[in-house]
Design a binder for these strands. Structure first.
Length: 431
RNA sequence: GUGGGAUUAGCGUAGUCGGUUAACGCGCCAGUUUGUGGCACUGGAGACCACCGGUUCGAAUCCGGUAUCCCACCCCA
């Protein structure tokens, strides 16, 4: 078969057999968000290009070389969102949500687009679950969202993921620190790799991240951000740790966690694993007190995080975590003859209205093939409907695990009785 | 953008001193006393061997190019 085209590089299809895994993960995220008082916000996939340029930061790789940007017929430049924070912040400002009381607590599920070269854990279209909180400078909020992230990971059954925590201070302490880094690394100018030389000018904190062994050795003795925090930032960081301790959330202070997006201030964190390849960050976030001002709003201290759904699913896969599939068929009705098809149609409707999944043959298979199909789709019960059953107005419902058959009347009580039978079997009680 | 690896039915693979109808497992379809699934058996459908070009009497197999996928750098979820 000649396909007219294939899917775009770096995109994935979620096929019907796989979707329950996504729904499982998303449901846990929804439940945890609700438990912490966050409500979902939905924003457009595309925004004016300027929003991301300003919000994410002109100097970032994301803005400089990874955005899907195009001109509309009307001549305006728009961009597919590369992340979720800017759009949510824009919506909050545009609708003046601060008037509804602070803090504003929002959660979201978004697809994001970045023109990168795909590899394990990195796609051009990927999906995030995120949390945003606006209008609080309290360290309690920082600890709270980290707890929320931890709860989600715990409920997904994941281990071998550790929390890396740092504070990169406010713009004032960061300026002092960047100067200290420049002073330090300038001594080794002739030894640093070429990318690090440009980092030295543009973003010295990135030097701490370099993978080259020589640079790493130099970075080992570099100044540490936590020694350059102002009193306010220092206290804030101490409080965050205090609340995390109180909640029993384990963390590792890692001065090298700096985050790649310009808007971060003070608290930054990542949940990292090494079981899915090189792209091991499954959740990243922190505080961004300057973002709302950058977007034209008034000063509104804010914070949040994003989780990569594909990466989380990969970790679950790597760790062999079983995800329950709740979508399987409760009742399959095998039919013989036209009268039976009509009767089955009628019964199915009532069973479905009772909230159960029920199916019948729609491709014209023989009885044996229908039974095979019922088995293949994992139907919990099957029922054969033919002229005999219709004449007697009753039929045998078969438990596909035990093979046990129960006779049931084909009247208006059928759906209810079937529900009861199913519940009884599930809970192990006899009726 | 820079590297490394891969590409044979829906999926996973075999198949190189180049040589008749490209093999196997799973899956799919049909059947095995025509009213009952899982097991087993029988049969069937399904592949221009990624694409283009070259070498050769002859190419899945050798050579060149292209594309796609995977992995890593970079960056990030």
């Amino acid at each position: 078969m000649a396909l007219i085209t294939k899917k775009i590089k770096g995109t994935e299809d979620v096929l019907p057999k796989q979707s329950y895994r996504w729904q499982f993960v998303e449901n846990i995220m929804r439940e945890e968000s609700r438990a912490y008082g966050f409500k979902e916000i939905r924003t457009p996939v595309f925004e004016h290009t300027e929003l991301f340029a300003r919000g994410v930061g002109q100097t970032t790789d994301v803005v400089q070389k990874e955005m899907y940007t195009f001109d509309t017929k009307g001549g305006e430049s728009v961009t597919l969102r590369p992340e979720g924070t800017a759009g949510a912040a824009r919506a909050v400002l545009e609708h003046s949500l601060e008037n509804e009381g602070l803090p504003i607590k929002a959660s979201y599920f978004v697809s994001c687009y970045r023109y990168e070269k795909p590899q394990a854990g990195r796609l051009r279209e990927f999906h995030q679950f995120g949390i945003e909180e606006y209008g609080t400078q309290s360290p309690v909020a920082d600890a709270e969202i980290i707890c929320l992230a931890q709860s989600v990971l715990d409920r997904l059954g994941l281990d071998q993921i550790h929390l890396e925590l740092n504070s990169i201070g406010c713009p004032e302490c960061r300026a002092k620190y960047n100067q200290a880094l420049r002073d330090y690394f300038s001594q080794y100018k002739d030894k640093l790799c070429t990318t690090c030389l440009t980092r030295l000018e543009k973003n010295p904190m990135r030097l701490l991240d370099c993978k080259s062994p020589e640079d790493r050795a130099i970075a080992k003795d570099a100044p540490v951000i936590t020694d350059y925090l102002c009193e306010d930032c220092e206290n804030h960081f101490t409080e965050v740790k205090k609340y995390l301790d109180a909640a029993g959330v384990a963390y590792n202070i890692n001065p090298k966690i700096v985050r790649g997006l310009d808007y971060y201030t003070k608290t930054v964190f990542e949940f990292v694993t090494d079981c899915i390849g090189a792209q091991g960050t499954v959740c990243g976030g922190g505080r961004y007190d300057g973002l709302m001002e950058e977007l034209g709003g008034k000063h509104t201290p804010s914070l949040g995080f994003a989780m990569g759904l594909e990466r989380l699913l990969m970790v679950m896969d790597a760790q062999g975590i079983e995800i329950p599939d709740s979508d399987s068929c409760a009742l399959y009705i095998a039919t013989m003859g036209d009268n039976a098809k009509v009767k089955a149609f009628e019964l199915l409707k009532s069973v479905r209205e009772a909230g159960l999944t029920a199916e019948t043959d729609v491709v014209g298979r023989g009885l044996r093939a229908q039974m095979k199909y019922a088995d293949k789709i994992g139907a919990k019960y099957s029922m054969v409907l033919g002229d005999n059953e219709i004449a007697e107005n009753k039929a045998k419902v078969k438990n596909m695990d035990s093979g046990e058959q129960t006779e049931m009347a084909l009247d208006e009580t059928f759906a209810d009785k079937f529900s009861v039978l199913q519940l009884a079997d599930e809970s192990g009680f006899q009726i």
